[in-house]
Design a protein around this nucleic acid. Structure first.
Lengths: 192, 192, 192, 192
DNA sequence: TATGAATGAGCATTCATTCAT
DNA sequence: GATGAATGAATGCTCATTCAT
């Protein structure tokens, strides 16, 4: 049992490693098996197909990400603090899960319609959540009365723009400091 | 001759259409041919390989995008005006070239190392260009003394975040108005 | 008319050139057309297919070879003289028609059953002719009473073995002298 | 393991069968698979490509041929005996390995430059070996003082001329008797 | 349960041949 | 007649998946 979960996890880890480096279509099941140190056929004992393996990873990753991001936000915080914490959590996630991040954000080629829809839906949920955050902050007077959809797009964009330098270029930043700076810009803009 | 360019263009158009909907690996040469209304072999009269076809499209697209974006920025403008125009041009490009945008911003799976390097280089160039813009604006006192790398990441993120709602979700916005709002947020932040 | 024959000949010449260097399957019709200085489609005005083109060349070549070989043998000659002349004529043909020789003797891969049968038949005819020569010589007492089939195989082998060094390796020999030596060996053997 | 070698051998056998009948370019991988009684993809588990499969067969065949030919020649023999044994071994090889012989002596179309060079080199080695044999025999006074290159060409020709009647026409001869006759002609010539 | 040998659907690419100009 | 752009049948090869062991 423990061994079973163990092996499943080993497959997932191996898959994350290979997928993040090569992308879905350039990754062969055999490669994953080799990295996992098991036989090719064994993967199919745990996952019905390559696609399902990817889907499982994505779901798992998304859950993990979502968890990392949301866990830290208690409702008593101000919008500014919430944003700062979001940015910080996001950065930390990217730094600590580079391979996962690459898979999750490297908005990969349309692999499957169902998968694409799933990803879209997840994105939508994330955005709705953010939109609520902004709506509340506007309502409480913390931030200006701006279009919440546009706000969401802008802030989401800022979020996702950070993974490339961190994951691909190995940019080393202190998440806390960076979050501070980013939040400052978001809140106060760049104008002198 | 006119006809020859014509057919080349028809192939490119068909390829853009199919590629943007299905992605590189799910696109069959035959499908492109069918959409272009020609025989499979004909594509190879104009493009040596599937990969080269994609590469041609990407280069062409990038050139078009680059052109659309840069053309509009005369040096006499203020940083704020430059940003507004950039945002507007970017939005307009996305709106007017949805399929192309999808390929340009989405089709990022590692298809070929050379291609990946090319894309990375293009991104780097774009960012360098932006970084210079910010450095100048800081120097002239137009914007605050912020880390230009971070600024570039943030603003790039804002840029690229817009294509999804426009292209995928069919969000209809007036580019001029949106650019105004976005620039306002960038310049002045969101704090009340 | 003259022009028509002219063009046909130009195609054949070009084909011989290319075929002898690249072999049937590695030769593209377009290549032949380019070498002939005409359009690809034009070949089909003169030859119904690639195979037929090859067949025409082979027939023509064989006729030429046969002619070169046989022309020189008047019946009044002794067997020894006949053999000497045959060898000499064969060598001369190889020297003067290297490309043709390569096609004719480079017993190429089975391209077509009909063609293979044709080639076999030609070989058989050649051998029958030779066999008759030997039978007559034996009858007249000029040569020993040996099995004519075996004799034919041996002498044919000697013949065909000469084309490689001449055509491929560019061996320069005086046909008359070589024929003398070869005939000497055939007639008297190699034993001291 | 035994099974693995087994399958590899079955593929080679099937390939020899088909290749010898149809030639390289007319042989489809699928056909080989069907004859071997396996799936198309299985061949690629044992051979990386069609060309490599041919190359393996050629190398194997050449080794086998070379082995059959050379094994039988101890140095204490006279030149005459050596020649007789060579002829006999050659004939026996042709009789016992008809398909292989057909591939080895017939499949000469330029398929690949590397392969062609390999074949040329093998031929050259064979000829050098023969040339040495003749040089020694001349030196020991066993045979007349003839040009060794010419001698080699002639005797090689005699050798290779035998495979066609044996393999193609199914000529049944007793190798020992035929070798005797051939050697007699080589040594003593045909003149009465 | 674990394996990896076997499989064959699937696809990019080639090139002889056609036919509209 | 001459052309060469267009064609699609043909084929080598890949790799996710299966299944006998």
């Amino acid at each position: 049992m423990a061994s079973k979960e163990n092996k499943r996890d080993r497959i997932i880890e191996a898959a994350i490693q290979v997928l993040s480096k090569k992308g879905y279509h350039n990754t062969k099941m055999e490669e994953i098996a080799v990295v996992a140190g098991i036989g090719k056929g064994t993967i199919y004992e745990y996952f019905p197909s390559k696609l399902q393996l990817l889907q499982d990873i994505l779901e798992r990753s998304f859950y993990l990400y979502d968890h990392s991001i949301k866990a830290d936000i208690s409702n008593s915080l101000s919008a500014e603090q919430k944003i700062r914490r979001l940015v910080e959590a996001h950065l930390r996630f990217c730094q600590e899960n580079k391979d996962l991040t690459r898979i999750l954000f490297f908005d990969t080629e349309i692999i499957d319609n169902e998968l694409r829809d799933w990803a879209c839906q997840k994105r939508r949920l994330k955005e709705e959540h953010m939109q609520l955050l902004f709506a509340a902050a506007i309502h409480s007077g913390e931030i200006r009365d701006l279009d919440t959809k546009m706000l969401t797009i802008i802030i989401s964009g800022i979020f996702s723009s950070f993974w490339v330098p961190v994951v691909i270029e190995g940019w080393e930043i202190d998440a806390t400091i960076a979050a501070e700076q980013v939040t400052d810009i978001i809140m106060c803009g760049i104008k002198r």
